[in-house]
Each structure stands twice: as structure tokens, then as C-alpha cells.
């Protein structure tokens, strides 16, 4: 009898996230049956795609036991950089005086810039020993300032960038077999990150560093290297997300990505990451992002003010973490 009771409790707390999500979908769906349609699912997946990639970056950081506030602004900077390299030759405000480039160039440039920001974060945290929260706060400001300065460059003068090539915007808004291309990007990244974290020595070393950095050092793990790599990978994810964000919206300006880092952290936490490091999974993060976007979309769908999403999101974070804490404290 007693063991059975424990099992139900365990199942409830282990899969709380899934239950919350199913419950939400049922509630929204019962109020508006049209919610169960391919179009809605496609919209939610599309809107979640860049968020998922940002959250995957954040996942690296949280597993390694750090924090990163620079994600959102890095998305903004890399969106502008990608956009500026994807303009049509005859667009009337040409950012750079360049010919038309294949879409791989803006994406590559955005990932590279993201990687550089990530490595700067990593160096500041692991070499200069600045606490991650402050180091990434500082770089976030530098990145945002750089983006403002860049966007203000004549002839652009702080206007939103536009006039992107079709083959670039297609990456964000096009379809293959009815499925948005951007969703392939997100799912592809999920698989890559999942494999990296669970099947490679690098992945396991990231977990080790996050679980106990001192023990990792004693065991011969180069903690500096691992931290540089995690921040670099996170930055690269932000860069990819930035490029796709520009492609999806067909535009870019300096306010892009604002607040994405907080959403990403929230999604990771709801998805079972620990703020103290060493714990986290791609599937959890994926569901975390989807839950937030289901709320976002679902509330508007049933005719509630979108302002409610903030209230609901906040409560979800608190509920998810408190369930998680119960899980750990019952282990003791």
C-alpha cells in the first residue's frame, strides 16, 4: 500500500510538467475546439522555434552551473548583422555596399558574432572570475550598445532593416512539405544538443563541471576550457536564433530579442534544470518553451487579453520550481 502511494506521488512530481501542459491544452481546447488544428500547432511551433534555440543555449549554461543574461541582446545584435548581410542588391537603404550574398553568409556571420560574445562571457567568468550574473550583465549592455551604434550607421540611421532576399526569409517563413523550415532548424538543434549532452564526453564533462567544479578540476577536467566551450556554444545558439528571427520576421532592429534571456531561463527551469547546475535535459527545455507559447497563443485564442500571459507565466514558474524542490527535499 505504502509503496504504491509513493509511486503515484513520484509520477506526479516527475511528470508534473507534462500534466500541466496536457491540462492547459484540454482547458483551452474545451473552450475553443478549433484549437485542435494543424494550423494552430504549426503557428505555435513556428513561434517557439527561435525561442527553443535560445533556450538550448541557456541550457548549456545552466547545466554548467553558470547564468547568462546576455542571450536576448545577442539575439538582437546577430539579427541585425544577419539582416544587414541579407539585403537585396537594389534595396533603397542598403546597410553595407555589398552585392547579393547567398543565405549561408548572414547565418554564418550571426553564429560567428554570437560565438565571439559567448567566448567573451566565458573568458570573463572563468578567467577573470567575475560572477556569471554580473559578467553577462556587463556584456549584455555592451552588446546592446554596440547594436544601437551599429543601427545608427548612415544611411540606416536607426531605421529597421528590411528588403531581405527571398531565399533568406524563406528560412524563417518557408515550408517544406507543409512544415515550416524554421521548425526543422529548431528540431535539428534539439537533436544535436541532446546528442552532444548525453552521448559525448564533452557533454558529460559539462554536467560534471556544473555538478561540482572543484571535483571536476581534481579529476583532470580543464574547467576553464569547458566553461569557454559552454559559453561559446550558447553564444552560437543565440547567433543562429538571431539570424532566424530576422528571416522569420523579414526585418531587424536594435530592440530584437529583448527579454528572450529571461524567457529562456524560465523555460529551462520549468523544464527541470537546476539553478545550481548539473541537471537539465533537452526534452524538458523543449516542453518548457512549448508550454509558454501554448499559454501565449491559447490565451489570445480564447479571447483573453494577452496581458494575462504574464500572470500565468509567472505562476507556472513558481509552481514548477516548487514541485521540483519538493522532489529534491523528499530525497533527503
Amino acid at each position: 500500500m505504502q509503496t504504491k502511494k509513493f509511486n503515484i506521488k513520484n509520477i506526479l512530481s516527475n511528470y508534473a510538467l507534462y500534466f500541466i501542459m496536457i491540462l492547459m491544452v484540454i482547458v483551452i481546447g474545451s473552450m475553443s475546439p478549433k484549437f485542435f488544428s494543424w494550423r494552430v500547432l504549426r503557428d505555435i511551433l513556428m513561434q517557439s522555434s527561435t525561442r527553443i534555440i535560445v533556450a538550448l543555449g541557456c541550457l548549456f549554461i545552466l547545466i554548467s552551473g553558470s547564468a547568462d543574461l546576455s542571450g536576448g541582446r545577442t539575439v538582437g545584435l546577430t539579427a541585425v548583422i544577419a539582416g544587414s548581410l541579407a539585403q537585396k542588391a537594389d534595396y533603397y537603404i542598403k546597410f553595407w555596399n555589398l552585392p547579393e550574398l547567398p543565405p549561408i553568409v548572414p547565418i554564418f556571420a550571426a553564429v560567428l558574432v554570437g560565438l565571439i560574445v559567448g567566448l567573451l562571457n566565458g573568458f570573463t567568468v572563468s578567467k577573470l572570475k567575475v560572477p556569471a550574473f554580473l559578467a553577462t550583465l556587463g556584456w549584455m549592455m555592451v552588446v546592446y550598445g554596440t547594436n544601437l551604434l551599429l543601427c545608427n550607421k548612415p544611411p540606416n540611421n536607426s531605421q529597421p532593416l528590411g528588403g531581405f532576399l527571398k531565399n533568406f526569409t524563406n528560412l524563417g517563413s518557408g515550408n517544406i512539405a507543409g512544415i515550416p523550415i524554421i521548425v526543422f532548424f529548431a528540431l535539428g538543434m534539439c537533436i544535436i544538443v541532446h546528442v552532444l549532452l548525453t552521448k559525448t564526453t564533452l557533454g558529460r564533462e559539462i554536467f560534471s563541471v556544473g555538478s561540482n567544479a572543484e571535483a571536476a578540476r581534481v579529476s583532470g577536467i580543464n574547467v576553464f576550457k569547458i566553461q569557454m566551450i559552454t559559453f561559446g556554444l550558447a553564444g552560437a545558439c543565440y547567433g543562429l536564433a538571431g539570424a532566424l528571427e530576422a528571416a522569420r520576421t523579414g526585418s531587424a532592429n536594435s530592440s530584437y530579442g529583448n527579454g528572450y534571456e529571461m524567457d529562456a531561463i524560465a523555460s529551462c527551469i520549468v523544464g527541470g534544470c537546476s539553478m545550481t547546475g548539473g541537471v537539465g535535459s533537452v526534452i524538458g527545455v523543449f516542453l518548457g518553451v512549448i508550454i509558454f507559447n501554448v499559454i501565449n497563443y491559447g490565451l489570445t485564442f480564447i479571447g483573453l487579453s494577452s496581458y494575462w500571459q504574464w500572470v500565468v507565466k509567472g505562476l507556472i514558474i513558481i509552481i514548477a520550481v516548487s514541485i521540483d524542490m519538493r522532489k529534491y527535499s523528499s530525497n533527503k
Partner: peptide
């Protein structure tokens, strides 16, 4: 403080050093 990786499995706690020192042994 510097021995165990508390939230990680026994398997990984035991193999972490060898895995780090010699990647090829476990891949």
C-alpha cells in the same frame, strides 16, 4: 567539496577521470 558529483550517477562518478584523461577509451 571536491570528490563527488552529487547529483550525477555512480556510473559517471566512477568513469569521469578515465573518460577525461583518455577520450578514446570510452568512445
Amino acid at each position: 567539496v571536491s570528490g563527488i558529483f552529487p547529483k550525477i550517477s555512480v556510473l559517471e562518478n566512477v568513469t569521469v577521470a578515465k573518460q577525461t584523461a583518455d577520450h578514446s577509451s570510452y568512445t
